[in-house]
């Protein structure tokens, strides 16, 4: 076996294992950490496919930002695991039956018969000096400018949706407007009261 093939199977095995653990782990923090492991291995497989930029982005964006945020959320939320697991056994037979059927059907198609090397030939090795990053950068703002701009609007939708669903004005908040605070005059703070001099007995 070639070394590259060995690396591929090694990474894939860990990837499948980690992905399975994501959905079977009892502790949500462990599940999130297994997802991190799955991302790392997927990144490794992309590296084998000469997609260095995507691999590094996957690790940086998903592991570095998204999953860390996700871990915080999981730790902050008080999730009642018992309630989540309610009804697990009653749904299991139907779910397992459909799942197993789907896996068998997909395995029949995705097996070597249609996806073997003769049906799906290996793409030619890229030339020396080929840069995946440059290729992506070349088309991202030219050929793909339309979906690129639209993707920014999708992010805007997500932002507006998140804010409009969660932002609440708190009542009786102690908020102070800084601009009012700096423009305060002496008259607003100090009041001079004229009164008769008093003498202590």
């Amino acid at each position: 076996m070639e070394f590259k093939t060995f690396v591929f199977y090694f990474l894939s095995a860990i990837l499948v294992f980690a992905a399975l653990r994501v959905i079977t782990a009892r502790n949500p923090v462990h599940a999130a950490l297994f997802l991190v492991l799955a991302f790392f291995n997927a990144g490794g497989i992309w590296l084998l496919l000469h997609a260095e930029f995507l691999a590094i982005t996957l690790v940086m964006v998903y592991v570095g930002a998204v999953m860390v945020l996700f871990l915080f959320v999981v730790m902050m939320l008080d999730i009642n695991l018992e309630r989540l697991r309610q009804g697990f056994w009653s749904y299991l037979p139907v779910g397992a039956l459909i799942g197993i059927l789907l896996v068998i059907e997909m395995a029949m198609v995705l097996g070597g018969r249609y996806f073997g090397l003769d049906a799906m030939p290996v793409p030619p090795e890229p030339m020396a000096g080929f840069s995946n990053t440059r290729e992506l950068g070349r088309v991202l703002y030219t050929d793909y400018v339309y979906p690129f701009e639209l993707a920014s609007l999708v992010l805007l939708v997500a932002m507006v949706a998140a804010v409009s669903l969660t932002l609440r004005k708190r009542k009786n908040t102690k908020y102070i407007d800084p601009s009012l605070q700096v423009s305060v005059k002496r008259e607003g703070r100090v009041e001079l009261v004229k009164m008769q001099a008093e003498k202590e007995d």
Binding site: Y146, P147, L150, A151, L153, V154, V157, A158, V160, A161, S164, L165
Partner: peptide, 15 residues
């Protein structure tokens, strides 16, 4: 673009 349009529509609809 089909997928991005679909997501834009669906995300707004979920909200």
């Amino acid at each position: 673009t089909m997928y991005i349009g679909l997501e834009m529509m669906s995300l707004a609809l979920y909200a």
